[in-house]
């Protein structure tokens, strides 16, 4: 959405669209821009006007840069309201998911590192132990955040992070939500074999 005209290159657009379609499993080209998705999107106010329909349009026209670096891709809540009401059954949430993966593949810094860190922490934890232990998982998440802040030398962020998360932990503890027990699954071997198998796969 810049002021400079966008140079549309049909063949390149085609290649990009096909990859997003294959990885997300969504028939993106079916979109006819009715904007139902945008009207129903719970985070649409916070995405600098990149609404789901616009995200689809970026993909279809092969505007790779905008598609991989916009706010919607990172703020999408994955609530699937868009896809449920889409007359063409396009689940923009899954497109956003795909674009995030593609952005990370392309070495683009995530717009919300915490987002990446949370899901990475969760996923890794589940692989490692077979089950999630919330305190442990959150700990990993925090460590990842800290590491990011450190990398950027953002010490103020570290302090506020510690402050806010300890408040949260205290709240949860007061509400008897935090548990110190530890759980794991014996199927970790199977899981790690499966994980090896997944290496290098772009789509299912």
């Amino acid at each position: 959405m810049g002021s400079k005209p966008f140079e549309y290159t049909p063949q390149a657009a085609d290649v990009f669209t096909r990859e997003v379609m294959a990885r997300s499993g969504q028939n993106i080209v079916a979109c006819y821009q009715c904007k139902r998705c945008a009207s129903g999107c719970p985070v649409a106010e916070e995405t600098d006007m990149v609404t789901p329909n616009r995200l689809v349009r970026m993909v279809v026209l092969g505007d790779i840069e905008s598609a991989l670096t916009n706010k919607l891709t990172w703020k999408c809540l994955f609530c699937h309201t868009c896809g449920t009401r889409c007359p063409n059954n396009i689940k923009t949430g899954r497109i956003a998911d795909t674009l995030k993966k593609m952005a990370l593949d392309a070495g683009i810094d995530p717009q919300q590192p915490e987002y990446k860190n949370f899901h990475r922490a969760f996923f890794n934890y589940s692989l490692r132990w077979g089950r999630i232990n919330e305190i442990g998982m959150m700990g990993e998440f925090q460590l990842r955040n800290m590491w990011d802040h450190l990398r950027r030398g953002n010490f103020v962020a570290i302090i506020s992070e510690v402050a806010s998360k300890s408040t949260l932990a205290w709240e949860m503890f007061k509400q008897k939500r935090l548990h110190l027990s530890f759980h794991s699954s014996k199927g970790r071997d199977e899981i790690s074999r499966l994980y090896k198998k997944s290496a290098g796969r772009k789509w299912i």
Binding site: F122, I132, G187, I191, K197, R201
Partner: peptide
Amino acid sequence: DWSCCGATSAGKINDFM
């Protein structure tokens, strides 16, 4: 011996998993 389903996170990282 059930294991974690991956919740919403797995799909953000690894579609196969």
